[in-house]
Design a protein around this nucleic acid. Structure first.
Lengths: 159, 159
DNA sequence: ACAAATTAGTTATGCGCATAACATTATTCG
DNA sequence: CGAATAATGTTATGCGCATAACTAATTTGT
């Protein structure tokens, strides 16, 4: 691949990251949220109470980031952290009532943002887009074991 | 669009941002660069000496970000900032020799990263991918001129 | 059983990015 | 002209994200 093509691609990804995040920030600001925090709330809404290590895995960011994010969301009263009885190292994170309400609002915004994002795309593209993006992500994902040519989009839980 | 679809899309964009940036960081680290800085070097290599305001526009980030990034790249000796003779407010930014050499190395990495990123994509997808991503970016870009259509599809108006 | 290795979480630090408030210089216009 | 306005850049501050170094708790292996 020549540099022109490569640069167009990398630049496009970088710009999409910046603008999509900026747009998310603008939408989330009225709710008192910063971009990144919504993902944590949505994950808790989807999966229920969980350990920070699981959050780190689900969100795709490192434990220290989770520590700081949960601390701030706890300070604003949207989540609660309680020590896990079965493991004295771990702390269980869960949504408070205000956190649940906020997550519902985020869901609304999230739909609006997605629709805004894909406006004007060629027919049929919207359906395959998430798959394409996930393929790209998988290709550069260093934290999760690489499946060389594995065609299996495993819906199976890994042991 | 229902929440499942919207979430899949937004989440996919967020994760791609994180992982692509992380992969870029891993590739750039041996060169002593942090992700984001490579874009500045490449822009200077592409366009030649320019004002910080132009860099801000080209990179799609705000002037204070440019101030800090240029300061750090100047400290590491890769760029040079000289006062503009025609405009006492502005400062001209340009690559030093070491900066030019570094930019060339970045170009190599950038090609490798792009190829790695698009591995395994359906035939024909690679060619249209940058265009798709740019469409998405344009749809959520608040700093650029609004969509050519007068029609505003956004659900949240920013007065 | 107990030392070694792993795992959960935190603290410290640094970068890129943002907004807000500000100083300085250019430009526009009454 | 001179005053209002716009543009360039900086400082201060804050968030998300990262890595490195650390503590404390749990699991493993012999």
């Amino acid at each position: 691949m020549d540099f022109e093509q490569a640069d167009a691609l990398n630049q496009a990804i970088r710009l999409l990251s910046l603008r999509h995040r900026a747009r998310a920030a603008a939408l989330l600001a009225p709710l008192g949220l910063h971009p990144g925090q919504e993902a944590l709330l949505l994950e808790l809404a989807r999966t229920g109470p969980m350990i920070q290590a699981q959050l780190s895995e689900a969100l795709g960011c490192e434990p220290p980031s989770v520590t700081l994010m949960t601390r701030k969301l706890e300070a604003t009263g949207h989540i609660r952290r309680t020590p896990a009885p079965s493991d004295k190292r771990a702390s269980i994170v869960e949504l408070t009532d205000s956190g649940k309400a906020l997550a519902d609002q985020v869901k609304q915004l999230w739909c609006a943002l997605a629709e805004e994002t894909v406006t004007g795309l060629p027919a049929g593209t919207v359906e395959v887009l998430p798959g394409i993006l996930n393929t790209l992500t998988g290709n550069v994902d260093t934290r999760r074991p690489r499946h060389p040519h594995g065609r299996r989009h495993g819906l199976v839980a890994e042991s």
